[in-house]
Design a protein around this nucleic acid. Structure first.
Lengths: 109, 109
DNA sequence: CGGCATCCCGCTAGATACTG
DNA sequence: CAGTATCTAGCGGGATGCCG
């Protein structure tokens, strides 16, 4: 999921897909767009998303600088994810993708 | 590459990625944005893209209604691909993806 | 010239079980 | 509650060779 290609991007647009591509990232970002979320909340909201892939996706988004991860040192543990500044700049893209998707689905009927 | 999922899309935005996702589609669409192209031209312009994956990508874009495929019954054969109406409606998305990609690459330095 | 058919490899993501 | 560690399966993508 979103490994860095050996060669430089042919297009900047491909860099964008590297970041938001992957089976679940869009959905994850959609939730985070509405506000911070804990790991357990993701698990409840998206039961089909396995623990492993969730963590993996969140890590990659974090490494891309799109989201932040805050750990509260307490028992039981608590980890909160939220959009970063850079992540918020993605909102326009997400909206556009959604809009065109709706248009496309309608046009294909 | 862009197989239809068994279950309905969680988000319309995911439908968009289904269409333009895949390793080479963005690049192909970029070329078609500049005008119609023949198969042999793609092969020259993008030598790293294999015949098989090119055809496959073009078929999927065609099935999605994004591009059109015109066959000229002559010898030697001639096949021309170009953006459809629906495909042209993608231009905004492509531009946005490129813009954010540039911004992102710059921000990550 | 354009495009199938075949074989093959690596990667993503899924399932399961275990740790602090 | 959050996160690893393994193992596995399926698919996207690549290489090669053949057909209209």
């Amino acid at each position: 999921m979103a490994n860095q290609p050996a060669q430089p991007y042919n297009l900047p647009a491909e860099a964008t897909l590297e970041v938001i591509g992957g089976k679940w990232k869009l959905l994850i970002l959609c939730y985070l767009n509405c506000g911070p979320m804990r790991t357990s909340e993701f698990r409840k909201e998206i039961p089909d998303l396995s623990q492993k892939v969730l963590t993996q996706s969140l890590r990659e988004l974090e490494e891309a600088g799109i989201i932040t991860r805050t750990v509260y040192n307490q028992v039981p543990p608590k980890v909160v994810y939220e959009m970063s500044e850079l992540g918020n700049s993605l909102r326009t893209i997400l909206d556009q993708l959604g809009e065109w998707g709706e248009y496309y689905i309608e046009a294909r009927k």
